[in-house]
Design a protein around this nucleic acid. Structure first.
Ligand SMILES: [Zn+2]
Ligand SMILES: [Zn+2]
Ligand SMILES: [Zn+2]
Ligand SMILES: [Zn+2]
Lengths: 160, 160
DNA sequence: CCTTGACATGTTATATCATAACATATCTAA
DNA sequence: TTAGATATGTTATGATATAACATGTCAAGG
């Protein structure tokens, strides 16, 4: 089993975090939008782990870093990151995770491990195509989609 | 465009409701489980429309029908119906909808119209297969999945 | 400069969604 | 007919999310 998503594989995670911030800065500069301190910190919080964090978890960490600790502080930063494509909301978890391919237009497919809570974003083209075809047959136009699988990641498959 | 899902097409809706209850009764009898008054009423409430209702909407209707009006009343009935496969939770909406193919083992794919709120369940085999393949490539074992599309139904596509 | 308008943040309050825990009632089978 | 299992009622609280408004920051145009 090669080419595992980073979330399921040992890797130099400092790259993930560093790249995430760098790409966000670059893309936002092109769009004339600002990666303000709260937004930056929020993205760093999400990038710190390959899993999804609830808004209140994020809020708590923001508060520790010296930002306001009222819910809108977290929700606004998260909303911005989601709109700009640097984070996604995982609906099954009511939680947020950093996007692993910012800049590339993509509808994410999430694999969520129910044991270790790892969240991986996996290539979606085929799944999207199948969904679009099913929708088309029903005369339905897809604008946004959430595709999420809950199960066991490779590391937890044995331990089940 | 033929073979539209009922949710998007004019149809004799009394069949949907009647069949839904009848099938639930039959299946539950086989399983030695009971379609109690609250459960039955809850299923009727969900079957009444091809859309998803929040638990508190359901609760309000249950209260009007003479049942308790505390949240657990609705959540327990909904949980039972979901476990037994007569209803699904639509995660994007935090809401519940009656299953259109009870008895058949299936992971649903939902098409949710953002204008008229109609929710249709559409054939999922291809989409599921694509998702399973993507997961397999990542060494991930899918146990449950939610696949939901938000967009415009055939009736609302023009009106957009 | 300095004003002004857009954007961003802080804060209060409240809305919405969901479950824990325990008391009471009903059904089923020994 | 009584004991255990299942179901319902009720209180209380937890978890998630947004509305509304006050304050602060910044960058352009005068
Ligand atoms: Zn990493
Ligand atoms: Zn895992
Ligand atoms: Zn119908
Ligand atoms: Zn519609």
């Amino acid at each position: 089993m090669d080419h595992l998503p980073k979330a399921f594989d040992a890797h130099d995670h400092s790259h993930c975090a560093g790249n995430g911030i760098a790409q966000a800065e670059e893309i936002l500069a092109k769009r004339n939008l600002r990666l303000t301190p709260v937004r930056r910190q929020t993205l760093e919080i999400l990038l710190a782990e390959h899993r999804a964090l609830g808004a209140y978890d994020v809020l708590q960490r923001l508060a520790k870093a010296g930002f306001g600790n009222q819910p809108p502080v977290a929700y606004r930063a998260l909303e911005f990151l989601v709109e700009q494509g640097f984070a996604h909301k995982v609906r099954r978890l009511n939680a947020f995770t950093a996007c692993m391919h910012p800049g590339q237009d993509h509808a994410p497919v999430f694999l969520i491990c129910r044991l270790c809570d790892a969240v991986a974003e996996t290539p979606a083209a085929q799944v999207r195509a199948a969904l679009d075809a099913a929708a088309l047959a029903a005369g339905f136009t897809v604008e946004r989609s959430s595709i999420e699988a809950l199960g066991l990641c490779p590391n937890c498959t044995g331990a089940a």
